Structure formats: C-alpha cells, structure tokens
Simulated scan of single mutants.
Amino acid sequence: MATLNTYLNFNGNTEEVFNFYKSVFGGEFAALMRFKDTPGCEGMTKEDQEGIMHVALPIGPTSILMGTDIPSNMVQVKPGNNMSISIGAENEAEADKLFNGLAEGGQIIMPLQKMFWNAYYGQLTDKFGIQWMVNYDYNQK
C-alpha cells in the first residue's frame, strides 16, 4: 500500500521554516539537499543554488514532512499552490496505476520518469486542483 506525506513549497525560506518545524517536532532531518548539489542546476542564480532542493523531517514513526524552495524563475507559491500530497508507491506498477488514475481529467506537470535520486517520479494536478507527487524509491528493497 502506498504511503502519503505532505510536501510544502516556499519562496526561498524553506530552511528557516524547517528549522522552526524541527524545533517544534524534534528529531533530525532525514534528508537536506541544496540545488547546487544536484545535477542540472548550474545555470541557476547563486541565490537559487543555495536554496533547498529537498528536505525531509520525520514526524512520528510513519509520517515525513517534506519541502522545497521554488526557484525565482518559476511561478512563486501562494496559498493554494504551496503544498502537494506525496505518494510513496511500493513499486513502479503501483506508481503508474496511481499516477494515471489521478491524472485522469487533470494536468500532468512532470510525467513519471527515472530521476537522479534513484527514484521513479512524476507530478500532476488532479481535476479538482489538488497537486500530487508520485514517487517510487528504488532503494526501498
């Protein structure tokens, strides 16, 4: 069965936000990556390269709060587009089924594809305006 987590988007202050959440919930970051440390970001501004590409803060035994900074050349976030539901699929077939089902009547933002972080990943907005991220992590076996 797939897992669900909340993914938050910010306009450059993700690090501040997640340090605050860490002070409230406790624990340590399971992941923290900056854009400058990922492939394909060489053309970004220096400020955007310092931004958070991905951060994950475990909340309890089964939930993870995740987030990212939106680069300045993309549509900036506001209430309504500042969060997504992230689905962790158990395999590629489940990822395909969930992604295609949710995409029916909606808009695909990024088709499912193999990504540099060793995952099968895609993004979409469903026909009701809800943003979804579908991810199968190849390292889970």
Rank of each mutant, 00 (worst) to 15 (best):
A2T: 11
A2H: 13
A2N: 12
A2E: 12
A2S: 13
A2Q: 09
A2G: 00
T3P: 01
T3A: 15
T3H: 11
L4M: 13
L4S: 08
L4N: 02
L4P: 02
L4T: 08
N5D: 08
N5I: 06
N5T: 04
N5R: 07
T6D: 03
T6L: 12
Y7W: 09
Y7R: 07
L8I: 13
L8T: 01
L8M: 14
L8N: 05
L8Q: 09
L8G: 03
L8E: 00
N9A: 05
N9I: 03
N9D: 11
N9P: 00
N9M: 14
N9W: 07
N9L: 13
F10A: 08
F10T: 07
F10W: 08
F10H: 05
N11C: 09
N11V: 11
G12P: 03
G12S: 11
N13T: 10
N13L: 01
N13W: 11
N13D: 15
N13H: 12
N13C: 10
N13S: 10
T14Q: 12
T14I: 08
T14A: 15
E15H: 13
E16I: 08
E16L: 10
E16C: 06
V17A: 15
V17F: 01
V17L: 05
V17Q: 12
V17K: 05
F18E: 00
F18M: 05
F18D: 01
F18Q: 00
F18L: 06
F18Y: 12
F18H: 07
F18A: 03
N19E: 14
N19W: 04
N19I: 07
F20A: 12
F20E: 06
Y21Q: 00
Y21A: 12
Y21D: 03
Y21C: 08
Y21P: 03
K22S: 05
K22Y: 01
K22P: 00
K22Q: 14
K22R: 15
S23K: 09
S23F: 01
S23E: 08
S23A: 07
V24H: 05
V24G: 00
V24W: 00
V24C: 02
V24D: 00
V24A: 11
F25P: 00
F25N: 04
F25M: 12
F25W: 03
G26V: 06
G26P: 05
G26T: 03
G27L: 05
G27F: 04
E28T: 12
E28P: 01
E28G: 01
E28F: 00
F29M: 03
F29W: 09
F29A: 08
F29R: 07
F29N: 07
F29D: 04
A30E: 06
A30G: 13
A30I: 09
A30F: 02
A30K: 12
A31K: 12
L32Y: 15
L32S: 08
L32Q: 11
L32K: 12
M33W: 15
M33R: 12
M33E: 14
M33S: 14
R34L: 14
R34P: 08
R34A: 10
F35Q: 01
F35K: 03
F35L: 11
F35W: 09
F35G: 02
F35H: 04
F35T: 05
F35M: 10
